[in-house]
Design a protein around this nucleic acid. Sequence first.
DNA 1: ATCATGTGTGTTATCGATAACTCAAAATTA
DNA 2: TAATTTTGAGTTATCGATAACACACATGAT
Lengths: 335, 335
Amino acid sequence: MITIYDIAEKAGVSAMTVSRVINNTGRISEATRKRVRKVMEELHYIPNSMARSLVLQKTKILSLLITDITNPFYTTLARGAEDTALRAGYRLLFANSDEDYAKEKDYVDMMLSTRVDGVLFAPTGDHSLENLLQLRKHNIPFVVLDREIPGIDADVVLGDSKEGARKLVEHLIGLGHRRIAMINGSPDVSTARLRYTGYREAHLLNGLTVEDSLVVHMNYRDFHDESALDALIHHEDPPTAIFAANNMLAVGVIQALRKRGMQVPRDVSVVCFDDFGHAEAINPFLTAAAQPAYQFGALGMQLLIERIEGDAALENRKMILPSELLIRSSTQAVQ
Amino acid sequence: MITIYDIAEKAGVSAMTVSRVINNTGRISEATRKRVRKVMEELHYIPNSMARSLVLQKTKILSLLITDITNPFYTTLARGAEDTALRAGYRLLFANSDEDYAKEKDYVDMMLSTRVDGVLFAPTGDHSLENLLQLRKHNIPFVVLDREIPGIDADVVLGDSKEGARKLVEHLIGLGHRRIAMINGSPDVSTARLRYTGYREAHLLNGLTVEDSLVVHMNYRDFHDESALDALIHHEDPPTAIFAANNMLAVGVIQALRKRGMQVPRDVSVVCFDDFGHAEAINPFLTAAAQPAYQFGALGMQLLIERIEGDAALENRKMILPSELLIRSSTQAVQ
DNA sequence: ATCATGTGTGTTATCGATAACTCAAAATTA
DNA sequence: TAATTTTGAGTTATCGATAACACACATGAT
């Protein structure tokens, strides 16, 4: 491996001079600068960022932790974060927790051991608090994404879950639905709580009562407990519509319904949070509250970089991004 | 930041002893081992992987370079690669080239400067040769993914593009289509060439002639040149079906068709390579040759790790994974 | 002519960890 | 009991880069 010492020797200067040429610091005569540059090219020198990080005490690496890399919401978000980080001269280390606290913890350990300069952190849930405190203990700046964590003061970028949920449920109510089930994420996740609140408000504002037997909780990542669906279907007064708290749950619900011979929207209408990107573009189907995923990433990354490079004593900021109601064909009026 | 020296001092031993405890090397008495462990926990010690990498000359970081992070094929592939890498004790650095050679080059420079132990490399096209040679020059092992690069000898994991294309086109022919257009990727990409070969073979095997005015090339990432579609539509003898060389192109084509008031499959049948994951599961639409994306990543990663840890003189391996024809509703018989 | 200032470069110590070597004390063997 | 081996450490050099300081020489001011 070529080091600055190899360059230095061949150019007949000291290693420090080479370092100065690389970093454009100190005073160097034009003649030696040129000579050093030439040798660097000849030997195809690439700086060793490990060595540099060790002495500079910063890595120029940021980390993006998301909870599901196969969810288009998060990959679009990742694009936003990536574009912003690269433009600002940082490298981006992706991490994917799969909604799994243990995996999240492992990734946090990696980040600590890699000494990343900052983390854009989409937590798996409230219990992520511990991982965030771990980052804070080691003085690693972070911005929380998508889900709010009680007990932590930090910059945070959120979607308007309550409002989005309210709009979705009011759309269903407007179509004549009166019995609307909700397949929610875990109550350990702030968005799940707020989406439930929105669901509830939509009912109350329209003179309907919320029936808790129609509300089911599960992991945001997949609809694994089909017995919950059976309970809804065989309810004495079954729902005519289902509000899935995110896109992955909608996928699971619709598949499970189909397995039971029920069609959407003929037998049940379905709405959900988050869009499906390209796929919905070609064959629009799911009525959804689409969040501005790219902006989530771009804005969060911008806040993070400001936090790292700017005044550390910056006040904490809380951004709430609106979602857009996209009415498509997974909903229809009650017959 | 807590270092082994802090631990050493507090435990009343030398730094070397701490290092030995951390790595389970050398001889340490049970008593001191326990004492050191205890201090490590008290101080919340996290090893500095930069320092370690510097002396060990390896980072335990692998890199996965994909060409489009918003394409479900690649994210599913990423999951396979991630699972395999983590299980083997490596960290994974994602990189996303956006089908852009310049971005790919930037990422390769990052990998070199990060001194990753190996790269799982989905190239943007034949010109990626230069970036691969750059890796090779610096002795970084890699496995090529999805697209073959003429001029480079390496482990490679590919899909069966020719066969998949043949099956798709024969499906169309079976439905009575005789004028089948192809929206292909760039001829600079091996899969595009092979998919064209498959398209051609399907024609020849069925007594049809290939008409080159029906074949259009563009970037795999998006269907940006809509004039090409206009030329097809206004062709004196227009196609009744379109074969899009990947899922992203299918998205673009179908959207552009809709803008022009044409419906799929009523006015034109559409088939493509690669699936859309979850989205297609809820609302099956695109007839596609689905590739085993997860396996691409898992298998590629396995080859890479074998290459890194095993016998360096291993012979190069070439794996070809079959695709599965999924007949859905974007195709119908000619009226 | 003398002193201060500026310019270009080199020397040494350091970041945090580990490899290679050393060595005293304890345990074993002859 | 003396010689040898084993055990459980410590010392020093090193990975590749940069910060802080040092310093020779040229230039300009007085």
